[in-house]
């Protein structure tokens, strides 16, 4: 979907960045589960990187798909 004057919507850019961040942070969190750090952060057992990365990925994909540039 294009925004005003045929330009890409701002929400599309947000979708791109959040998707990338989601993938990176989720992957880092999963890697930390497989290979626990020597000096874990407080509440490490909650694996915040995994669920926060997953949240970013979901939000990013929603925006990316919803506002992906298409011919009108």
């Amino acid at each position: 979907m294009h925004g005003a004057h045929g330009r890409f919507s701002i929400w599309f850019f947000i979708g791109v960045l959040l998707t990338l961040y989601g993938v990176i942070i989720l992957a880092t969190g999963l890697y930390e589960i497989a290979s626990p750090p020597a000096h874990p952060v407080v509440l490490y057992r909650l694996h915040a990187s995994v669920w926060w990365g997953a949240l970013l990925l979901v939000i990013g994909l929603i925006y990316l798909i919803r506002f992906f540039p298409r011919e009108q």
């Binding site: 961040y21 990176i24 942070i25 952060v41 915040a48 990187s49 990365g53």
Partner: peptide
């Protein structure tokens, strides 16, 4: 931030 955020989250 340093207390709770590991790699990736810290960058964010």
């Amino acid at each position: 931030l340093a207390r709770y955020c590991g790699p990736g989250l810290l960058g964010l």
